[in-house]
Structures are given as C-alpha cells and as structure tokens.
Amino acid sequence: MKYLALLTGPEDIGQSRLFWIVFVLLVLNFVLGPLWMSEFEASNVSYYLLNLPMALGLCLLWGYCGVLSFGQVAYFGIAGYLYGIIAGNMRGDPWGPLLGEVGGLAACAVVSAIFGYFMFYARVQRWIVPILTLVLALLLETFLGQTAGYQWRVGSVQLGGYNGMTGIPWFQLGDFTFFGYSFYYYVVLLVLVSYLGCRALVNSHHGKVMLAMREDPLRTELLGYDIRARQLAVFVIAGVLAGLSGLLYVQWGNYITPSQLGLVQAALPVIWVAVGGRSKLLAVAISAYALNWITYSLSSAGNQYALVIIGGLLVVVMLFFPDGIVVTLARNMNRQALTRLLRRPGRS
C-alpha cells in the first residue's frame, strides 16, 4: 500500500481512478500492439520508446531538481559504446550482452558521479551546469570521432571513428536473443519500469527535498539537507537513465556513431522535456514519444520542410504553452473536471 501511495502521489499527472484506468489501457495497448503492428512498426515504436528513459532522467534533473544538463547524450554514448565493446568482445558468450549492460550502466554511474562531484561540490552557478555538461559531450564526440584507425581497438572491437561502431550484438539472455517483437516487449518493460520508478522517486521523501531544492536551494540547505549530495544523487540517476536509453539504442540499431553525442543530438532531450512540460514526468514521456514520431513521419514523407516544421512547432508551443503543452492541457482538464465536480455537490 505504501508503495502504491508512492505511485499515485501528487507529483505527477494523474491521481484519479480514471487516470489509472486509462494508463492501464495504454499499457495494454502497447502490450497487445504486436497483434496489429507489423514487425517494422513495432521496431519504430521501440525506437520512440527507447528515448524515454533519457528524457525522464532529464525531467528529474531539470524539472524536479532545477539543474539543467545539456550533455545527457554523453552518458547515452558511454553506455552504448561500452556495451558494444563488452558484448562485442564476448561474442558467442550467452551472458556477454547482460554483462555489457551492467558494465555500460556502471560506467555511466561512475562518470556522472565524478563529473557531478566536480560541479556540485564546486557549487558552480546553476546556469553553468548545462554548458559544462555540453562540453563533456563535445569532448567525447571529438575523441571518438578520430578513432578510425586500427590502433583504436579494444580487444576485437573497433571504435570505428566517425563511421561508428558496427555490428553491436543484440541483447541476449542466455540463449534467448531479443529482436523484432521480443525486443519490443523488452523495451516496453524497461520503459514502464523506469517511468514508474521515477514516479515513485518524486513522490518519496527524497522527491520532496528535490522540489525544495528547485524552489530555494539556500533555504533547503539551512533546513539541514546536504543539497550537494542530493543533487549529485539525482545527477547520477539521470546519467544512468540516459545510459539505459543508449543501451537500448545500440541494441535496436546494432550501431552507434559519435554524432549521437554531438550538439544536435544533445539539444533533443532538452527539447522533448521543455515541449511536454518539465514539471511532470508523464508530460515529458508523452512529448518525447510524440516528437520522435513526428520527426520520423515528416522525413518519411521525404520533403525539405521537416526541420522548418519542427522549429516552428517548438516556437509555437513555447509561446502558447510556456509550461509545456502536455502539462498545460492536463491542468486545464483537471480544472474542468474540478468545476464539474463542484457543480454536482454531494458526490464527494
């Protein structure tokens, strides 16, 4: 019960029974999806979904903790590359990919902990954090971009420079390999778990402290909380979640390039979060999914207007829904529901 309360707590969209019915239906929709989706569509949906953990992590960090990172793609890349190296070297070993996952996520945790330590314990100003994280991502991109030569081999795996690391193995548990529909289910499961986990986190006591830090770091500190450690903890969680997206990405496409860590890619998670509304996890999840879908649909139609439309969309959304489109809509829906409730007293 206590855990259920964590999930239905006030710090995300949806507390009503109706919401949870819709939510379960939505999950069911994803679970039953393969009944009407072709394998190709399932693969596309997997791609939209696999970006969600990174977006959720950034939402925790930015929306709930008030710290914007512009370089979440660095952890995306670290996990992806490390998975490729470990799983690629242990090719044939049924447990290699699992070890690669553990290694990738651990590396994300370690790197983000060290980097975060430098930032938060130095108490750098808040607006510098995005640029510092971006610099880390650009450094990694520059380094990986020039690793084309043979000397950049780790065991039997070549880093591959700008052309990227190819032939990254599918995910595998024992003798069962995940691809096609099974990969789709694996993504759905992991994304659901990370969403519910984040939701529980923000409704926990720690979540309350995060919000306090966002509102007023100084006051929070005076109340006796070590905000440096708390910020660092959220930073690490966000890094690991970005790493999870990176893992799923390389398992989806069997491929990663340094441009995944570049400036353009780095801005995308920030945009997903801002468009949905950074103050609510679900809003971010919805907008990340939707924007990925729109990007694909536009370019699939094969015209030059894709970037213009996306750019215009961003401007319009931020002008008219400055708190994020999903958050604003949800708030209005709540208000309507509230007025309806008030009109019919006695139903409590």
């Binding site: 914007l68 801005a267 920030v270 801002a274 215009g312 961003l314 401007v315 400055p322």
Partner: peptide
Amino acid sequence: ELSALVVTWGISLL
C-alpha cells in the same frame, strides 16, 4: 531562461 533556450533553438532551425 530555459524555455527561452528551447524557443531560440526552434528559431535557429527555422
């Protein structure tokens, strides 16, 4: 500031 960041990114794409 951070919403401004997204808007200016949109403008840059446009």
